[in-house]
Design a protein around this nucleic acid. Structure first.
Lengths: 225, 225
DNA sequence: TCCGTAAGTCAACAAGGTTCATTTTGTATA
DNA sequence: TATACAAAATGAACCTTGTTGACTTACGGA
């Protein structure tokens, strides 16, 4: 049965066209500024047609992310070759930030907008999500880093460590995206801020500058305010 | 001239009513979900009236922030009594995060949405802004901390240090607000993540656990990936 | 009492997401 | 070949929301 197959293919092709148009516009103008009508105009179809392929604007947006974030996943995957987990942690941070710099609108989309509620959805719904893969990779690296015994004993929960490191770099980017116009801040170059964050975190984890391999003293004592 | 004054007072009172209604709604529902019409309905005036007091929705929103962020400024001001600048840095982080926890929607408003362009506006436009005061305070604390000589020599730029520390805590909050539903992350409690971030950063700055007062070794050498 | 100004309102516009009812199109079948 | 039918596509409209133009009302001063 040829015709049916062809139709199916054509349907897929149109969907791809929509995604391409949407990608272009979202990346250039940001989520809010892009209208369904504009996307439709770009592909020379009526706005209504888009709704035959996507439930609503957010659904389109989300599918686009899912599709595109392979780039993100691929960049991360390359870092598997870094043997030392602590160095890999650093590399992860730098790569993550680089992605944010290269694709600011995608970054915003993925990390700075309310996530959909996965409540109730099965694992299949989010399996294969590059964001998840990246987090898993970060988590594994954190665990390995801890396993080297070179970190301060306070940092022994891989999950907590991964979340904290992630938050640090994310903070640099997020602040950059939303606050870079504050006139009372003499912003340092983004790259410099990223590097400082990465260094600071690793310094904090190792808690002994550069080449110390053993933690200097086990008792950290109370840290209360 | 009594009547004129009274009119002025009444005008101010109505403006305050608008702000109160807006605060309530913004805090409860978030910026996007609040409509001008809803605010108007709450104060039992027509929507048009709001435009007699504020240029547009964003202007209203911004004035509200400006007005409310005294709370923010006051919390910070209290920390001036912490003598040790490093401890004060810690306290600043914890207080900042506490504010975000207590007023998530205000936090979002102030730190997670595109700032207006201050381009071209004179200093008067943003003078007295509590956000600026808070940043100035953080900056001063960073400078003092550096001046103690207890930090690693790599961290000698107060501006860069302030920006990095801010970014770290902000990252924890921002990630929390937009990503706490990701099912593949076993999120640790927010308070714990905040504390970890603060500790990690201070550990990194001091680069010698706990009570070390002198930097252990001046040469940090290259940190490149 | 009458005028002018400030305060306030109604109705409407425009933009944008979304849907209803309808038309067009291409395929399979009598 | 002519017809029935489902898929594809669309134009017009609906609804919400920010915003504004034009009008009405209230009131202090002459």
């Amino acid at each position: 049965m040829g015709p049916i197959d062809r139709r199916e293919r054509e349907k897929e092709k149109l969907k791809k066209e929509i995604l391409d148009a949407a990608r272009h516009l979202f990346a250039r103008d940001g989520y809010d500024s892009v209208t369904i009508r504009a996307i439709a105009e770009r592909i020379e179809y009526s706005p209504r047609t888009i709704y035959l392929h996507f439930k609503d604007k957010e659904d389109l947006f989300r599918e686009l992310c899912q599709h595109d974030f392979n780039e993100f996943g691929q960049r991360f995957a390359k870092l598997a070759s870094v043997k030392d987990p602590v160095q890999r942690l650093k590399a992860l941070g730098l790569t993550y930030a680089e992605f944010g710099e290269d694709f600011p609108n995608h970054y915003r989309l993925m990390f700075m907008s309310e996530a959909p509620d996965y409540e109730g959805k099965g694992e299949e719904e989010w399996k294969g999500n590059p964001e998840m893969d990246a987090y898993a990779f970060l988590l594994a690296t954190a665990a390995e880093a801890i396993a080297t015994g070179r970190l301060l004993p306070a940092y022994k929960d891989p999950e907590l460590l991964a979340q904290t490191v992630w938050a640090g770099i994310h903070g640099v980017l997020a602040l950059h995206f939303s606050k870079c116009n504050d006139p009372w801040v003499k912003w340092r170059p983004l790259k410099k801020r990223v590097k400082t964050m990465v260094d600071l975190q690793v310094d904090g984890l190792l808690a002994a500058p550069v080449k110390a391999t053993k933690r200097p003293s086990p008792n950290i004592g109370k840290k209360g305010a």
